[in-house]
């Protein structure tokens, strides 16, 4: 406990934060590297956290057919739930149509969300390869990658989404 208090004071002094000296209470326990790794699933826009694995739109078509189509429709449109295909022109119509293709700024978000939240009733059950593949398929339906492009931790963050520059910080 004493060691951690000292460390924390050192940090505060080092960064000269305009705060009171941080007090530590010595409550809680250090988390192991393994337990952090097991839960640290969020994929940021640079994709640094992406897992190993890969997939193409061709592989993804099968995953989509079995695990997604019943809700999101044939080819990503016309289902009972969110359309997954569109283009930025559709943001201009009334009401606007916000989809992966028309609205989402980062392809990494599609991987992140699909891996932890879809299919809706069985979230977290797709392997990394399946998530890369179905992500590739949805991006392919949006005309953003070709059928045989291999998506993996290197290539996925390089996919530039059409609405990449469409977001501005809240000016209110």
């Amino acid at each position: 406990m004493q060691k951690s208090s000292l460390l924390s004071i050192a940090t505060i002094v080092a960064c000269a934060a305009p705060t009171l000296l941080a007090q530590t209470y010595g409550v809680g326990r250090p988390a192991s590297a393994d337990e952090v790794a097991a839960w640290d699933v969020t994929i940021g826009p640079e994709g640094r956290e992406l897992p190993t694995g890969s997939g193409t739109a061709k592989d993804g078509a099968q995953v989509y057919e079995v695990r997604c189509k019943e809700c999101h429709g044939d080819q990503g449109v016309g289902g009972d739930h969110a359309a997954l295909v569109g283009n930025p022109e559709q943001l201009k119509q009334t009401p606007p149509l916000k989809t992966v293709g028309s609205y989402w700024p980062y392809a990494t978000t599609l991987f992140d969300y699909t891996r932890r939240a879809m299919p809706f009733e069985e979230p977290g059950t797709l392997s990394a390869d399946q998530v890369y593949a179905v992500t590739a398929y949805i991006l392919h339906l949006n005309g953003l990658v070709s059928e045989d492009d291999v998506l993996d931790r290197e290539s996925l963050p390089r996919v530039v989404m059409p609405n990449r520059e469409g977001f501005v910080r809240d000016p209110r």
Partner: peptide
């Protein structure tokens, strides 16, 4: 992190096509 619920959802589309 630009997760789904701060990009696809809970953002404000403006008339000019940009979104807050």
């Amino acid at each position: 992190q630009y997760v789904k619920d701060e990009t696809s959802k809970y953002t404000e589309l403006m008339e000019d096509g940009t979104a807050w």
